[in-house]
Nucleic acid binder design. Structure first.
Lengths: 203, 203, 203, 203
DNA sequence: GATGAATGAGATTTCATTCAT
DNA sequence: AATGAATGAAATCTCATTCAT
C-alpha cells in the first residue's frame, strides 16, 4: 500500500489535533474552568508550551473545539435542510442528527452542552449558534408554507422550543438523569417528534 | 417600643440579604467564575470578610441563591400542581410561572439559567432540580390518566422536552436573542402551549 | 513618653514601607529584571501577595521607589537653588547633594543609576527627571546673568554635561570602578567643580 | 567565474551579519529584555533557530554587538590618541568621535547607552569599557605633563567626568530630550570642550 | 458583627533554547 | 546551513479565604 498516512497514522498525527481531542476529554471531565492547561497537555502527551504554539490561550482552545464541531454540525443540518422531503421529515432528520451525536461522541456533547450552549464564553460565536435556530425556523416556515404545519404559530419561537427540547434531552444524558442507550435515543427521537409535531393533546 | 424593622428598615436590613441580592447581580453580570468575592461585597456595600461570616465560601453563596429561589419556584409550582384544574391548564400555569420569572427578576433568571441549570456546580442540588421535572411529569401523567393527553408518550421524556423549551426561551431572553417585553412573554406562553399541547402538525 | 509611635516603632512599621525598602535592596542586588517579586516579599518578610495589595505590579514598585526618592532629591535641590548664594556656590550645593547620596544610601543610588536613569522603564516620569536638569540650567543661567559664568555657553547643554559628570562618578562607585570613601567623595566634589567651573586648561 | 559575492551580494550576505544588524535595531526598539529572540530573527528574515547556530545565547548576541562596535570605537580613539597633537586637540578628537556616532548610527548608540553602559549585563566587558576612560585619562595626564592642563586635578576623575558629559548628551538625544541635527551635534561639541577645557567661570 | 490586611496555593502564559529533519 | 515544532523552567499575578483587631 502506498498511502503512508494510513501506514503510519500516529507519526502523521498532528499535535494540534491531539491537543484538541485531549481538550474535549479534559473539558468533559473537569469543565472549562476546572481544566488546567497542563491537564490538556498531559492528556495529549505534549508539553504544555506546545499548546501555545497552536492556540493563543486556553479559551481559544475551547473556541476552536466549538467552532470546528459546530461547523460540522451545521453542514450536516444544511444537508438535511436541502433534502427533498416534507418539513416534518426534515424535522426528524434534525432530531436524529442532534440526538445521535450523544452516542457518537459523548465527551463532545458534554462540552458543547455545558460549556458553550448558554455559557458566557464564546458569545462571539453567537452567529454560528443562531444558524442552528435559523435552520429549524426555515424548516418550520417551509412546513407552514406547504400547509403541513399550522400557520398560527410563531416560527421563530417554535424553533427555540424545539431546540430547547433537543438540548434538554442531551443534558439529561450528560447529567446521567435520563436513561442512556441506543434504544433510549430512538425513544427520545420518537417522543420529541410526537410532542412537537403531534402535540400532547388527544385529538 | 415598636417594631424596629419598620422604624429603621435600612439599619435592620439584614447584611446577609444584602449580600445575596448583590451576589445575584454580580453573578448575572460576570458569571460565577468571573465574579470575585470582593465584587459581591462591594456591590453589597460591606467588607468582603463579612461574606465569610454568613457563608462558608463563594460557592455556598451561589448554592444559597439557588436553593432559596428554587425552593420558592417549587412551592409555586406545587401550588399550581395542586390546583383543581385539568392537566393542560396546569401546564399553562407552569409555563406562566416560569416564563414570567424573566420579567420579574431578569438577573436571577440569568444566574439560574447560566450558572446553575447545567453547570458542574451544585450538582448536589440535583434532587431539587429534578423535582421540577417531576412536577411536569406528574402533570403529564395525570393528563394521560384522565384521557386529556395521549398515552403513547413517555411522560418523563415529555417533561424534559417541555422544560427544555421553557428554559430555551428564557435563554433567548437572557442572551438578548429573542425580543423582550410583556407582549413577547405572552406570545411565548401561547406558542409553547400551542406547540406542546397541540403540536405543529395541522390536524 | 506619650508618643507610642516612638515607643513601638516596629509594630507601627507599615508593610508598604517594608516592601519598598526591601525592593531597593533587592533591585540593587539583582537588578529590576533579575529581581523576582517573591525575592522582594521574602526580603520584606511578607507574603508576596501582599505586594499586590499595595502596588499593582512589580513595575509600580520600581516606579514608586523612583518617585518618592526623586521627589525628595528635587526638594533638596530646590532648597539649594533658593539659597541666597552665588551661582557657583549653588553648583557646589547641587554637587554635594548628589554625590553624598552615595554614602548615604548606596543601594538606592545603585537602583537609580542602573534601573532608572537611562532605562526604558519609567519613561513616564520624564518630567520629574527633567526638573533636575532644569534646576542646573537655571543655576547656570543665573550665573550667566550675574556675570559669574560665561555667557557664550548653551546653558541647557551645560546642565546636561554637568549632570552627566555627576552621574558618571556615581556610576563609577556603583560599579566599584572608582575608589570609595568619604575622602574620595570630597575629592570628587572638588574635582567636578574644578573641571566644570575652572576648566582643565591652565590660565 | 567572477566573484560571486559581487554577482549575488544578497545571497552571500552573511546571515550572521544580518542577525547582528537586526539585533541592534530590535534592541534599540524594545530594549534587551523586551526583545525576543524571535523578534530578532524575524527582523533579520531568518528562522530563530539559526541564531543559535551563530551565537550561544541571546546575551551573546548583545555581547557581540557591544564587543564589535566598542572595539571599533576603541581603535578610532587610539588613533586619535596617537595623533601628534596637543592634548586639548586630542580631547576635541575624542569628543567628535563619540558625539558623531549618534548621527552615524542612532540605533547603535541607543543600545550602547541604554543596555550596555551601566547595565548589569556584560559586566565581563568591563575592561573594554575601562579602556575608553583610560584613553581619556592618558590624554589628560599628557596635557598635565606638557603643561597644557592644570596639574592639581585628579586625571582619573576628570576622565570620568568628561566621559559622563559626553554620554549624557548622547542620552539626551536618545531620549529625544535634546534637539537633534548636525548643527546641534556641532554645538554640543563646542559646548563640552568649552566647559571642560575653559570652565564655566569667567576669567 | 464588621473590617480589610495578610496569606499562599495555584494558574496561565512567555520565551529562550534544543533538536529532528 | 536552515527551519520551526517542541520543550519546560520560571515568573507574574489573582483571588478565595483567614484572622487579628
Amino acid at each position: 500500500m502506498t498511502d503512508r498516512s494510513i501506514a503510519i497514522p500516529d507519526a502523521a498525527a498532528d499535535k494540534r489535533r491531539l491537543i484538541l481531542d485531549a481538550a474535549v476529554r479534559v473539558f468533559a471531565r473537569s469543565g472549562y474552568h476546572g481544566a488546567r492547561v497542563g491537564d490538556i497537555a498531559e492528556e495529549a502527551g505534549v508539553a504544555h508550551g506546545l499548546l501555545y504554539h497552536y492556540f493563543s490561550s486556553k479559551e481559544e482552545v475551547l473556541a476552536t473545539v466549538f467552532r470546528e464541531n459546530w461547523r460540522a454540525l451545521l453542514e450536516t443540518l444544511h444537508r438535511v435542510e436541502a433534502d427533498d422531503e416534507p418539513a416534518d421529515e426534515k424535522l426528524r432528520g434534525v432530531t436524529k442528527v442532534i440526538l445521535r451525536s450523544w452516542r457518537n461522541d459523548p465527551d463532545l456533547v458534554r462540552v458543547m452542552v455545558r460549556e458553550v450552549a448558554r455559557s458566557p464564553h464564546l458569545q462571539a460565536q453567537v452567529d454560528e449558534v443562531r444558524e442552528v435556530f435559523l435552520v429549524l425556523q426555515r424548516i418550520v416556515e417551509e412546513g407552514q408554507a406547504k400547509g403541513v404545519f399550522r400557520r398560527d404559530l410563531d416560527a421563530r419561537l417554535a424553533s427555540w422550543i424545539i431546540y430547547g427540547g433537543l438540548e434538554e434531552i442531551l443534558t439529561g444524558w450528560v447529567l446521567g438523569q435520563l436513561p442512556d442507550g441506543d434504544d433510549e435515543v430512538a425513544r427520545a427521537e420518537r417522543t420529541i417528534l410526537d410532542v412537537v409535531c403531534g402535540g400532547l393533546v388527544v385529538r
